[in-house]
């Protein structure tokens, strides 16, 4: 009966992929791991340090502050961009040339390189020649992103919302378009209110694209670098210095390879952990609960 010939040559087919991944991810990552446990003083002088770098990084006040800023930033922009993106997608025209026109208009910010976005906003917010900076000053509102931390934060958030909400809106728009007309018709016959249609038809059907949107936006915002760097340079003081900028200063500016490697790994694990927890939670929500009592 069982005349299967054992043949492991299929593994050879995986080999090219393995080589690619090795060069693109595994080897660079292992280099970082290597640095994170050593103190490199020169080409021939290195000492094994164990978890020392990790400990010092975790206890570093400046980094902890940057981490808190980073988390706050990510949460704030998610809290704004996700509902706003859904809202925009809901009011976008459904067909005809208007739909195409709106889609193109809304995608434009996504096409602009990140440091250009920073530059645009840097000019935009200048009190002398920038439309927003000048406008606010004329209105009698004090506004200065180089001196006021609140202004700097508000501007960075506004910039990110402008830059990335279109992505959320587009994902949601595609999700909404894929809902069959029959759902809306059935809802009308079931006398569902507009809110009920949103809550029980549109939102559930958007779950999958929203998971993607939240994950993408979280990872992106958690690694944000070029835009605030160009706009505020991390200031005033260190009010808008996020994790990636602290890392760059440490690794490139100060050449502290060991600590910055340890820091990178922690950074990486945090993103991985948050994404995983989020994804698993959402997926679990769709499963049946084990029966206990109920109707």
């Amino acid at each position: 009966m069982n005349n299967k010939v054992p043949n492991n040559r299929a593994w050879l087919l995986v080999l090219p992929m393995l080589v690619l991944v090795a060069f693109s991810a595994i080897i660079p990552l292992m280099t970082v791991v290597n640095y994170s446990v050593q103190d490199v003083l020169g080409p021939n002088a290195r000492f094994f340090t164990g978890t020392e770098w990790f400990q010092s990084m975790l206890n570093d006040d400046a980094l902890q502050a940057a981490f808190l800023r980073q988390i706050s930033f990510s949460l704030i922009i998610l809290a704004i961009q996700i509902p706003l993106g859904i809202g925009i997608a809901l009011i976008m025209p459904k067909r005809g040339w208007q739909a195409s026109a709106v889609l193109i208009l809304i995608t434009l910010p996504l096409l602009i390189p990140w440091n250009v976005v920073g530059s645009i906003w840097q000019i935009f917010t200048r009190g002398d020649i920038g439309l927003m900076g000048w406008g606010l000053r004329e209105l009698g509102i004090e506004y200065n992103i180089t001196r006021n931390a609140g202004d700097a934060w508000a501007t960075i958030i506004l910039m990110d919302v402008w830059h990335w909400t279109p992505l959320v809106a587009m994902l949601c728009y595609s999700g909404l378009r894929s809902i069959p007309e029959a759902y809306y018709q059935a809802a009308r016959i079931d006398r569902a209110s507009k809110w009920a249609v949103f809550r029980y038809i549109q939102l559930p059907k958007l779950t999958n694209v929203l998971v993607i949107a939240v994950l993408l936006r979280f990872m992106h915002s958690f690694m944000i670098y070029a835009e605030p760097f160009v706009l505020t340079g991390g200031g005033p003081g260190s009010a808008t210095t996020f994790l990636s900028q602290s890392l760059t200063t440490m690794a490139v500016g100060q050449q502290d390879l060991g600590p910055s490697a340890a820091f990178s790994l922690i950074y990486f694990l945090v993103i991985l952990l948050v994404s995983w927890v989020f994804y698993t939670t959402i997926m679990n929500m769709q499963k049946d609960k084990p029966p206990h009592g109920g109707a």
């Binding site: 069959p180 029959a182 759902y183 018709q185 059935a186 016959i189 038809i201 559930p204």
Partner: peptide
Amino acid sequence: NIAQVFQFPVIYDTMT
């Protein structure tokens, strides 16, 4: 006062 059943079953996914 009518109800309609469609070709593809329409159910509210998240509800029991």
